[in-house]
Simulated scan of single mutants.
Amino acid sequence: MLAEIVDGRALARKVVEDVRAGMASLDRAPGLAVILAGDDPASHVYVNGKVKRAREIGFNAEVILLPADTTEDRVLAEIAALNARDEIDGILVQLPLPDGINTLRVMAAVDPAKDVDGLHALNAGRLSQGSGGLIPCTPLGCMKIIRSLVPDLTGSHAVVIGSSNIVGKPMAALLLDARATVTQTHIHTRDTQFICRGADILVSAVGKPGLVRGDWIKPRAIVLDVGTTRVAKPEGGHRIVGDVAFEEALHVAGAITPVPGGVGPMTIACLMENTLTAARARAEARRSVPRSVAEKAWLA
């Protein structure tokens, strides 16, 4: 029996529908700003897709384009300006940044309440403690896919290949919070193939085409392929491929996400959800300020 091919686009449409419905509780459309530095073709494609979807939903979305030779100070200045703008609820800095710019310093400059990528240390800490905060979009999308297939992960063995701050580490934290037993591998892990064979849920996020072969996969396991690598086609142009040898995995796994059309659409949908979440939280904070001032005046 062939594995179920997960339709990430259909799941993403449901998330977006919920976001549209949730906007009714706001007194204005959420504002999303994306900073894009450099001329990386893939980054421009990703940003265009995110902004297009945001505008389709009804968000006020804008892009700040910076040249490849931009300085770290310039990026930080743009972030400071966006932090100060009340109509901006979400700030996303598209990665990777040009050489010479400290990514961690840039992420730390974003207001945690507007950090819709979930990469600020405060949000990462909240995630590790299970205490809320904005969650990185790709792991959040992965969890929505997994729960659509297996609502209760208690006791499941999950293996995450990759330990990046963007996907690997937050993915492992989310799975652990869902009461799965989690094993995380990285470039220095020995016997990764053997470890993967024991996974009920296997998530690969390293960007190495064809890394995960069919014989790495436990029969009927859920396989999420987060890898996205542009490879040249013999006839010219490029195509996007994942980490998993798809045709091999199709004959072993119980369910698998394709590339493209699997995790990617969910990442964008979860960015929209995070922006709505940030807008709601900031709206509530604005409403609470007058009450606090009034209470202080009355007590005086």
Rank of each mutant, 00 (worst) to 15 (best):
Q129H: 15
E284P: 03
P151G: 03
G214F: 00
L26G: 08
I88F: 13
V231E: 02
P96G: 01
A77E: 14
R28C: 00
G254T: 01
L65T: 14
K208A: 01
G254P: 07
K208Q: 13
A180H: 12
N48L: 08
N48P: 07
G207C: 06
V241P: 01
Q94I: 05
R85Y: 02
G162F: 06
D200R: 12
R126A: 00
N165L: 05
L66V: 02
L76C: 07
G261R: 08
I35K: 09
H238K: 14
A113F: 01
D40R: 09
E87V: 05
V6E: 06
L149A: 08
L140E: 13
A297E: 15
D89Y: 03
R220C: 06
A37N: 04
P290I: 01
V244Y: 03
A68H: 10
V226E: 08
V226I: 10
V223E: 07
V252G: 03
A199N: 00
K296Y: 14
E78A: 11
A24E: 13
I187Y: 15
S164T: 00
K233H: 10
V241T: 02
R230T: 04
M272N: 11
V223P: 00
L224S: 03
P139Y: 10
R13D: 07
R13A: 11
V93L: 05
L26V: 00
L26Q: 12
P41L: 06
L2M: 15
S292V: 11
L271G: 04
S156C: 13
V289D: 13
L211P: 00
A109R: 13
D117K: 11
V150M: 14
S131F: 02
R85E: 05
D27C: 07
D115H: 02
T228P: 03
V19L: 03
T181P: 00
A249L: 02
W298C: 11
A269S: 08
V19N: 10
L202N: 10
R20P: 06
L95C: 01
P290E: 01
I135A: 12
I240K: 13
A42C: 04
A42W: 13
A249F: 01
A21D: 12
I135D: 05
